[in-house]
Design a binder for these strands. Structure first.
Lengths: 340, 340
DNA sequence: TTGAAAGCGATACCAG
DNA sequence: CTGGTATCGCTTTCAA
């Protein structure tokens, strides 16, 4: 078994209190006593137990990160940013993939509480805001990242999704598209809803419609669902000349569908994605997409979270970052003579 | 503050022992008493503290996963598989990105011990096997995944990297390439070394050389370094007609380099990657690569780890899975008249 | 300065 | 069945 504080104390012929002091650099101890103790700690390879320390009220120095799917490059990037920033402050990260399932989210939420994490960063949608009541009442600091829970008093770091959707719409409109389809995420994903709202808004302003039957929602397997839905849209009566996909994974599904149907992108079909993950830069053709500053978002989320740890939640900030249109080669003016 | 076992006991008018029993479903308690207690627990929204439980010797139900970089899609996929399998058994995951830095690895190793994780899955290279001595002596179960530590007595789940490298070489040889460059990872990444060893072996058997100056190692930023090195190789005296990249990220760097130099792939340059991440399927052109069964690997690693938790490490297994060549469109017969 | 002792929340053994 | 109690490893008064 590992050496405990008692072992060290005994070996050094002092009290455990003394050992505790040198470990935490608190209190007053004579130089020699301190050095002596440090020597013993080294010899015994003593490593204080975080568990025991946490039980006495100290923090656990652990943060929870809830995302839909860590294997989605966007969230993997967010996770990396969060991990790095947390690490700088001495925190480690427990990662949970919810697949946008309320059931899993609920389970993880309470699990993380039982594990006494010092805070949670939530990047996954939730249907009922009530799910967060418990953690909030118990004052577990929370910050939402890349997702929103309106009318809920939580710190939030998001990109302006509405604006992102608008950007996409304007770009497509500028190119001359009018019959456009949308690949959405699961309905309880706030960011997806906002993006579409912004998208539709611009279309409407231009006197165009975005009929409900041309926006289709996907489930957990984004690429596969995206492909399936794109296939449907592309084979429908009035084939859209452009597709707005609420994230890069869906866009990839669309790309695959186009390839399968031998619909050329961007000549016959324009595709715009969202997130600007590494994927967007390597696809064939490279994806026009809306960029989110993932690194900054992760960093800010952690800072906000740790800020709450120190002082009472001053104000419930809502930090809105600017999205950016990154034009690559998956978009172009619509062909005048669509085939099929 | 959250309700404790004492609160429940008091409210229910029983002893804490009784409450503990119903929580853990152990011991004998009369139906009515049990129901009564459960009611109180519900009313108080009682959630047992894992921390306290862990202190008394119970497990923490937390696993550590050490990888070079969680934002690398390969490791993100591994992480997802590990998380899922762990979740099934009630474990959550602490993820640590080491960037292949011994310093970070060491820090995380000891951190995870202090946090009393029940086991660690290591998917990152380490230079000195001694780094694992301490955890091992303290009997923290460990399993290596996708990386090896030869002559160290640890359970291991890997793909046959040597064979993977051979596969790549044979493929390139079959196409008729003879002047081939290699993009390697950091030298202390065992998998990368093995892949190159296998690659070289096949070349040698065919009477070909793989001069050291044509294999270049990259650092942490795989894509950027890969591009830089590919650029160098492609601009060298004797430009290779093919590049074997030790992972898909490096291959993407190579792809970018080729594009920048206007070297056509695969007409003028063949590229083969490794890992078969989602990236490989979307690049332009789609990447010929060596596939690893990430999902299976993650699952097996967890099973092995939890296996060690129950019974003493029976035998130090080394599970070797088969890699698979996935031929897409980044490889072809070398052009007879290489331009430049 | 230094140390004895009281928790923190839960488990488990042992009487009753 | 049920409850008292020691214990886990560490932090933190509070005296000495």
């Amino acid at each position: 078994m590992r050496a405990t504080i008692y072992d060290v104390a005994r070996e050094a012929g002092v009290s455990i209190a003394a050992v505790s002091q040198v470990v935490n650099g608190k209190g007053k101890i004579s130089e020699e006593r301190r050095n002596e103790i440090m020597l013993v700690m080294e010899r015994l390879q003593y490593q204080p137990s975080h568990i025991a320390a946490a039980l006495t009220g100290k923090k656990t120095y652990t943060l929870g990160l809830l995302v839909p799917d860590i294997s989605n490059p966007f969230f993997a990037e967010i996770a990396r940013a969060v991990e790095d920033q947390g690490d700088h402050q001495g925190y480690s990260l427990v990662i949970c993939s919810t697949d946008n399932k309320d059931e899993k989210l609920e389970r993880y939420l309470s699990l993380l509480q039982q594990k006494s994490v010092d805070g949670m960063i939530i990047g996954t949608g939730l249907k009922k805001k009530e799910m967060l009541n418990q953690p909030i009442e118990r004052s577990v600091p929370i910050v939402m990242i890349a997702r929103e829970m309106p009318d809920l008093d939580v710190q939030t770091v998001v990109v302006d999704d509405f604006e992102g959707g608008s950007l996409a719409a304007r770009h497509l409109l500028d190119l001359g598209h009018s019959r456009i389809g949308v690949l959405a995420e699961h309905p309880n994903v706030s960011s997806s809803r906002e993006r579409i709202r912004g998208f539709r808004q611009i279309l409407t302003e231009s006197g165009l419609e975005l009929p409900e039957h041309r926006v289709v929602a996907s489930g957990a397997d984004l690429v596969k669902d995206g492909k399936r839905h794109a296939l449907e849209l592309l084979q429908s009566e009035e084939r859209p000349t452009a597709l707005f996909c609420c994230n890069d994974l869906l866009a990839i599904g669309a790309l695959q569908a186009a390839k399968e149907l031998e619909v050329r992108v961007p000549a016959e079909l324009s595709i715009v994605g969202f997130d600007n993950t590494i994927l967007a830069s390597v696809t064939d053709p490279p994806l026009t997409t809306i960029a989110q500053p993932t690194e900054l978002m992760g960093k800010m989320a952690v800072d906000l979270l740790l800020g709450q740890l120190k002082k009472k939640p001053d104000i419930k900030q809502r930090t809105v970052l600017r999205p950016e249109l990154v034009i690559r080669h998956s978009t172009a003016v619509p062909s005048t003579t669509p085939t099929i």
